[in-house]
């Protein structure tokens, strides 16, 4: 019995727009449309999917090239440079910096 009531309620909801009247826009709307129509029409330029894919591919290649170059440069960097600086300078217990 409860099930039937629930189904009935669902059907009532589905049909709740039966007999409804159409909503009407405000009176001022046509004036706004006329104003927009008076402006010279320029349709937005569309970009084809091919152009968009080519641009995306170029950006991806650039990023990959940058990453490759960066990793190569990192490998080529002599690690001794960094160590020598650490070895040369030191901080004593009293906060003084040695090697300056």
């Amino acid at each position: 019995m409860k099930r039937k009531t629930f189904n009935g309620q669902t059907e009532d909801i589905l049909n709740s727009m039966d007999g409804a009247t159409r909503a009407v826009p405000s009176d001022a709307l046509f004036r706004l449309i006329e104003q927009r129509v008076a402006i010279p029409y320029t349709k937005g330029k569309t970009i084809s999917l091919g152009t968009l894919s080519a641009a995306a591919a170029s950006v991806a290649i650039l990023i990959m090239l940058n990453l490759t170059l960066l990793s190569k440069k990192q490998d080529a960097m002599p690690s001794g440079d960094a160590r020598s600086v650490v070895e040369y300078y030191g901080i004593l217990d009293n906060g003084e910096i040695t090697g300056l």
């Binding site: 009532d12 909801i13 709740s16 727009m17 039966d18 007999g19 409804a20 009247t21 159409r22 909503a23």
Partner: peptide, 10 residues
């Protein structure tokens, strides 16, 4: 535009 009695359902 909905009828008053159907407002809640709509």
């Amino acid at each position: 535009g909905v009828k008053a009695e159907n407002r809640e359902q709509s």
